[in-house]
Amino acid sequence: MTEPSPQAGGPAAGDPMPVVVRRSARRRRTVSADVRNGTMIVSIPATFTQAQEKEWVARMVRKLQGRSAGQASDPAAADRALAQRAADLAGRYLGGRGIPGTIGWVTNQNSRWGSATPAHRSIRLSHKLRGMPDWVIDYVILHEMAHLIEPSHNRVFWSLLESYPDTEKAKAFLAGAAFAADHGLAGR
Rank of each mutant, 00 (worst) to 15 (best):
T102K: 12
R62C: 08
S24E: 06
P133Y: 04
Q65P: 05
L174M: 02
G184I: 06
G96H: 01
V57N: 00
V21N: 01
R62T: 07
G66F: 07
T30K: 04
A86Q: 01
G70E: 04
P75M: 11
D134P: 06
R62F: 07
K128P: 05
P4V: 11
Y164W: 03
M1R: 09
K171E: 13
S159E: 15
H143V: 09
R155D: 13
V140E: 00
Q84T: 13
L129Q: 00
P18Y: 03
R121C: 12
A146C: 08
I137T: 13
A146K: 00
A12N: 05
G66D: 00
S115G: 10
A77V: 11
V31F: 04
V156A: 15
R59T: 11
I103R: 02
L142C: 06
G104M: 13
T30Q: 03
H183R: 12
D15A: 12
Q109C: 10
V19S: 05
L160V: 08
K169G: 10
A78C: 08
L160H: 04
D138Y: 06
A12F: 10
L89R: 01
V19M: 03
D166Y: 14
L125V: 07
A8S: 09
L142F: 06
T30D: 04
R124L: 12
A180N: 03
